[in-house]
Amino acid sequence: MIANKKGGEKYLSIWWFFVLIVIAAGIVVAVIAFNGADVNIKELEADILITRVVDCVVDNGYINEEFLKPGFDIFQNCYLNKELIIYQGEGKNRGDYYLAYEVYELDKCNNDDFRLGKTTNLECENPINPEPRSFGVANFVNECKLSKVMKEAREYPLCSERYIYVLDKDNRKLIFHLIAGSNQKIKS
């Protein structure tokens, strides 16, 4: 390739520049991949959202009666940013959050599951809290299930789910079920 060339042509060949470009590209890609690595806190964020709601409407194991009546504004009462959480959007501008909660009477749930200490996927019916019971991007529920089983699904949201045993003012036994999801990404 360079055998019959003389002087600078031997060294300053197009191939040498090609090698330099390949090396430079490799280094740049590696550095961008390192710096762009995402610290994933979506699940933590979803967990905090649930904690905020629970801390706000449950006091010493008793659920706030107002929460079970129509017209209770969870966002105003719990200092949550309504616009951010209820925003749904589409495509690239899709919302970042999902929040849903339901309150059931304990005897409307599968009691055996609860007595055995099962705290996930309880089967309950006829929620007693008024609508709306969910806000934000509803599709997160299905996408969160996918992201649990597909570790490479980094663009998918992550959710947190909790079942809490609470009482109302008449000491009625209730199950407070909450799901929250987040798909927020850092912005430049």
């Binding site: 200092y79 309504k82 430049s188």
Partner: peptide, 14 residues
């Protein structure tokens, strides 16, 4: 000091 900084939203309305 890296290209204008990074932004992350919080959902608290306080």
């Amino acid at each position: 000091g890296v290209s204008g900084g990074r932004v992350y939203n919080f959902f608290s309305s306080a």
